[in-house]
Each structure stands twice: as structure tokens, then as C-alpha cells.
Computed example of a mutant assay.
Amino acid sequence: MFGWIARIIMIVAGVVTGLFMARDAPLFGVVQTMVMLLLIAVAVTALAFWPESRPFGRRRDR
């Protein structure tokens, strides 16, 4: 399961990197890895703050 998620993130990172760099550039792999790490950081941040994005009226108090 984690392999599929990593593969999808790498494909997206490759597409984004391909928009800005040539695929035969020497640093393509390095930039692709940096974009992948940025995408993972954005996804983790979005998941971490997901409960905070609810409207205050719907929040259950404990």
C-alpha cells in the first residue's frame, strides 16, 4: 500500500519537475526528489490541520 502511494507521489513530482526542467538535465533526479519531499510535507500538513478546518458550530465538545 505504501509503495503505491510513494509511486503516485513520485509520478506527480516527475510531472511537476518536467514542467520546469528537461528530463535529460543532470539535476533532474535531485529536483524531482525535492519536489516529492515538498509534496509529502504539504500532504502531512494538510492532514494534520484537517480537524481544525471544520466550522465551529459543528465541533463536538467533550
Results as ranks from 00 to 15, higher is better:
V44T: 07
M34H: 04
I11D: 00
V44I: 12
A43E: 15
I11G: 04
L27H: 05
M21P: 04
E52H: 06
L47F: 04
D24G: 05
F2K: 12
F56D: 06
V12N: 01
F2Q: 08
R23S: 07
R60H: 07
A41F: 02
L38Y: 00
T17K: 14
L39Q: 02
A22S: 13
L19G: 09
F2C: 03
A13E: 05
V31C: 15
V16I: 09
E52F: 00
D24Y: 04
A46R: 02
A46H: 08
V16T: 10
P55L: 01
M21F: 11
T33R: 06
I9T: 13
F28S: 03
T17R: 14
M21V: 15
M36L: 12
G14V: 11
W50I: 12
R7T: 09
M34T: 08
W4Y: 07
L47S: 04
T45S: 04
L39Y: 02
L39R: 00
V35P: 11
R62A: 02
I11T: 05
P26N: 07
M34W: 15
V30C: 09
T33N: 10
L39D: 00
R60S: 14
R62N: 04
L38S: 07
G18V: 10
F28A: 09
V42Q: 13
P26V: 10
D24P: 10
V30Y: 12
R59G: 15
I11N: 03
V12I: 11
I9D: 00
I40D: 04
T45H: 01
T45F: 09
V42T: 14
L39P: 12
S53E: 01
G3M: 14
